[in-house]
């Protein structure tokens, strides 16, 4: 699979040479390096990294003052402030920590539709996000979901691990039914360290998508929802008397496709999209609806960046 079209030869390869070198467009790669996945909450520190945390620590960036209490390190007392106000105030500094980023890719059968398929689109999107995170020394873990966690790539750091990401994504195929609630439950149970969770899915699990997002939130993860939308979802490209087959369940339904019916299907899909958007807005979960007709590059550099997911 070719991840991104190559447009220029790099003078500084990402990592060791190999077939994966071709998977990234170098111009796109450079632009990705200037981005970072934004987290609205400073997560608990792990290893020191480039990412600031709310925890007062040994960083150099001033964060805030607080009242001195017994046992505090006197080295952090701001004596100048004491001279002006005769109060003992403790200078708080931001601790620079690494961020744990979980990229959850829906690999159910419904993701196999579209041209390019939604799964291929999700792979490219996930690879780009993984590279952004790895470039900032974040810990990146990948998980493929269907009716549970199908496969996973443990958390890792460093740009050179992008090839592991590619190796993980490449063999993913669209199969199985979607059960986001079960998958989220499995994920939460298996990952104790909190962090950012990016869910890339078409969310055609009408009964479970809300539960899945809520589960992530309740477990103190910071979820991002990227809903992939493809035109084939609402128009099979055939008219008249046809038999529709559900890609996941195999269920068949005979019906007559008319322009009015197509319009109603489009309206139903938009309702579904609006429902997800409303739920996410209510729960303060960043939500992006990405049409597969938009290239992954545009989606990353324009939509996600403009939406505040990448900074």
């Amino acid at each position: 699979m070719r991840w991104f079209p190559r447009t220029a030869r790099s003078s500084q390869p990402v990592a060791e040479p190999g077939p994966e070198r071709e998977l990234f467009d170098e111009a796109f790669q450079k632009r990705l390096e200037g981005l970072a996945l934004m987290s609205r909450r400073l997560q608990s520190a792990g290893l020191r990294a480039e990412r600031p945390s709310k925890k007062a620590g040994s960083g150099v960036e001033f964060a805030d003052y607080r009242e001195y209490s017994a046992g505090d390190d006197l080295r952090h007392v701001d004596w100048n402030a004491y001279a002006r106000s005769e109060r003992l105030l403790l200078r708080l500094h931001e601790e620079e920590e690494d961020l744990c980023v979980y990229l959850l890719v829906d690999s159910s059968a419904s993701m196999g539709l579209g041209s390019p398929s939604k799964l291929d689109y999700a792979k490219q999107l996930t690879a780009a996000l993984a590279y952004v995170s790895l470039s900032h020394l974040d810990r990146v873990a990948l998980l493929a979901l269907a009716d549970g966690v199908v496969s996973s790539l443990p958390a890792m750091r460093g740009k050179q691990r992008i090839f592991s990401v590619f190796a993980f994504l490449r063999p993913l195929t669209a199969q199985g039914r979607t059960d986001l609630a079960a998958a989220a439950t499995n994920f939460v149970a298996a990952h104790k360290r909190r962090g950012v969770v990016v869910l890339v899915s078409d969310l055609y699990d009408f009964a479970g998508w809300q539960t899945a997002i809520s589960t992530l939130r309740y477990a103190k993860f910071e979820p991002y929802v990227l809903q992939l939308v493809d035109a084939s979802d609402e128009d099979p490209g055939l008219g008249g008397d046809i038999e529709l087959i559900d890609a996941e369940t195999g269920e068949a339904r005979a019906l007559t496709v008319t322009p009015a019916l197509l319009q109603r299907v489009r309206a139903a899909r938009q309702r579904h999209e609006r429902a997800v958007a409303a739920f996410c807005a209510q729960k303060q979960v960043p939500y992006f609806a990405l049409d597969t007709r938009v290239t992954p590059q545009d989606a990353v550099l324009r939509i996600l960046r403009r939406g505040g997911m990448l900074g």
Partner: peptide
């Protein structure tokens, strides 16, 4: 003719 769709539930709603 047969056509595969991502979710029949969407069509059922319509």
């Amino acid at each position: 003719k047969r056509a595969v769709v991502a979710s029949l539930q969407l069509w059922e709603q319509a």
